[in-house]
Design a protein around this nucleic acid. Structure first.
Length: 575
DNA sequence: GCCGTTTTCGGCCCGACTGTTTTCAGTCG
């Protein structure tokens, strides 16, 4: 069984959790967590790096010891250190850490005093009133544990970015209307455009803090006020989404925004840079002794540690600080750079609206061209088109283009990649199109080797332009199929075709890490909506967020090209 | 356990809120 980076990261995370319960040196715990993060966002399989003889200690946060553990895990699938630790700290205690309000200290106390190892045992003990008597616990803590367990709350529950926007933006508008509010902003992983978020961090600059707190906790959607102080409050909305509010003075807004945008790892490094310069960086500003020297804007915070402004989407401690110091930050792509959309459905397959309506919606969204790309016949569930129906659509597009001004409709297809890697429609009809988008919609369970070979073969077809939603994942629903994405990217570079970043909120596929890998390999990314209805072009902004997280510049995105240049590039894939 | 424009040893980011405390530990972000 081949070991992947995610497996290694999971072992490091578990080691960190259990070491924490075991009261190990907190910095040692952090070292494991940092290593897990590094491994998870690597973009290159460690197995291959080891095979090549790469020096793993050159990776950030990986030293001699962890490099050896990586090799051990690759060889045996396990880490002896973890096995040993399990003798003292049962693996199931990790689950208890996810209960809101329980951290390593309390989990340990529960285990040692009551023998509690699972959520079920904890609920029983709490209901029996055994928890309240433990040192450091009390009636309220016991009740909170019961509530959280009964509601199956977990600190790990996450929401799609688009879902968070759906709840967060009206709340933001509500707060912005509050008297005395200068500005209300959403920070946190939302601002970094992570594909899913665990909570919303809202930041308000205002003179009257108490009034903002009152308005916030009185918001119609608030189900429960979890905590509330003078400058900070946490609530749960009826949707289950947790929202943290922080109120600051105007002079601290930049520092607070920086602090609450994160990521944590990025912040820690910025603070350390401050320390090295004799400065203290916190959410109120940048201080030399008692004197505030920066903090009204984020740019001033970065300037105080001799760095240029770093866009939120890059703040993951994945090399952005080094790039900033070297003056090599990318100029990230923006929504306004997109000139078209190369993946759009209509009611001819599984879209909801007629061709003309989708084209008008695209025009209203500011696009200059779109490609109509229906499903092909194999996807019967989605009314996939056969050759005959596709030809009929091509005629309709020709007729429409004759009438249209200011927007051009390209002829495409989202053709199924069959199990053996062949395409679901004959070459004869594919050759009549402007572009061929290929996609996997079946046989997700193939082995990594077979899946990779299947997709490579599809890309080698005579007509093949773009690989749609390359990993096949559905966020919070379905894992990606097992495929060697690096090999796919390398193959696309050799073949001269493109990869899609599907902007549907449930997909956001390519992932950020592989966007970056594609960019480095010189493979252009098509940033598409995969629209099925008129409103779906609005999802392009989430795709842009993901592209920015993947360090993509305008030139790295296929559909920032004007129509003429785009046609040239597509033509290269169609012969 | 990692790391080095003070350092190969001695550091490792910083503050708010809650509940159980009689001055603070635990959790969270």
């Amino acid at each position: 069984m081949p070991v992947h980076n995610d497996d290694i990261a999971a072992i490091f995370d578990e080691l960190a959790d259990l070491l924490e319960i075991d009261e190990a040196n907190p910095f040692r715990v952090r070292a494991y967590r940092n290593a897990a993060r590094t491994v998870r966002s690597l973009g290159t399989e460690l197995a291959e790096m080891v095979e090549r003889g790469d020096d793993l200690t050159r990776l950030p946060g990986i030293g001699k010891d962890l490099a050896a553990k990586i090799v051990e895990i690759l060889d045996t699938g396990r880490a002896a250190a973890l096995t040993k630790l399990h003798k003292e700290v049962p693996a199931s205690l990790e689950e208890l850490l996810k209960v809101p309000g329980l951290g390593p200290k309390r989990v340990k106390a529960l285990y040692q005093a009551l023998g509690v190892k699972t959520r079920k045992q904890l609920l029983a003990a709490a209901r029996a009133g055994k928890v309240r008597d433990l040192e450091g616990f009390g009636e309220k803590t016991e009740q909170r544990i019961i509530d959280n367990l009964a509601a199956e709350r977990s600190s790990e529950r996450r929401f799609l970015l688009a879902t968070a926007a759906h709840y967060g933006e009206p709340l933001l508008a509500y707060l912005n209307k509050t008297k005395g509010v200068d500005e209300a902003l959403i920070a946190g992983s939302y601002r970094r455009a992570r594909e899913t978020v665990g909570d919303l961090d809202i930041l308000v600059s205002a003179r009257d803090h108490a009034e903002v707190m009152r308005r916030f906790t009185a918001y119609d959607e608030v189900d429960e006020v979890v905590s509330q102080g003078e400058t900070r409050a946490t609530v749960l909305l009826r949707s289950g989404l947790q929202v943290d509010l922080r109120v600051v003075d105007k002079q601290s807004l930049g520092a607070a925004l920086h602090y609450f945008t994160g990521s944590k790892a990025h912040n820690i490094r910025v603070r350390r840079l401050g320390q090295q310069r004799g400065l203290k960086v916190n959410e109120y500003g940048v201080f030399r002794g008692e004197e505030r020297i920066a903090g009204a804007t984020e740019a001033s915070v970065y300037k105080s540690v001799d760095l240029p402004y770093i866009p939120p989407e890059l703040r993951e401690d994945r090399g952005e600080l080094e790039a900033a110091r070297a003056g090599r930050l990318p100029r990230l792509v923006e929504l306004a750079d997109l000139k078209g959309d190369l993946h759009v459905h209509t009611e001819a397959s599984d879209g909801q609206r007629p061709l003309a309506a989708m084209v008008e919606a695209a025009r209203a969204a500011g696009l200059e061209y779109i490609a109509i790309t229906e499903h092909s016949r194999h996807l019967a569930l989605a009314h996939g088109l056969d050759e005959k129906r596709l030809r009929a659509q091509l005629e309709a597009i020709d007729a429409l283009n004759d009438r249209l001004e200011g927007i051009t409709v390209l002829k495409g297809i989202e053709v199924d990649i069959l199990e053996d890697g062949s395409l679901d429609l004959p070459e004869a009809v594919l050759g009549e199109l402007d572009l061929v988008v290929g996609a996997v919609h079946s046989h997700f369970g193939l082995s990594r080797k077979k899946q990779t070979a299947r997709i490579r073969r599809a890309m080698d077809a005579r007509y093949f332009s773009i690989l749609a939603h390359p990993s096949g994942r559905l966020l919070l629903e379905r894992e990606a199929y097992d495929v060697d994405m690096e090999a796919i990217i390398a193959h696309a570079a050799g073949r001269g075709c493109f990869l899609e970043l599907d902007a549907q909120p449930r997909r956001l596929d390519l992932t950020d890490v592989y966007c970056q890998a594609a960019r480095e390999a010189g493979v252009l990314v098509a940033l598409d909506s995969d629209a099925h209805g008129e409103g779906d072009f609005a999802n392009l902004r989430f795709g842009v967020g993901q592209a920015r997280r993947g360090w993509l510049e305008k030139a790295d995105v296929l559909n920032t090209r004007p129509l003429k240049a785009l046609r040239r590039l597509l033509k290269g894939t169609m012969s």
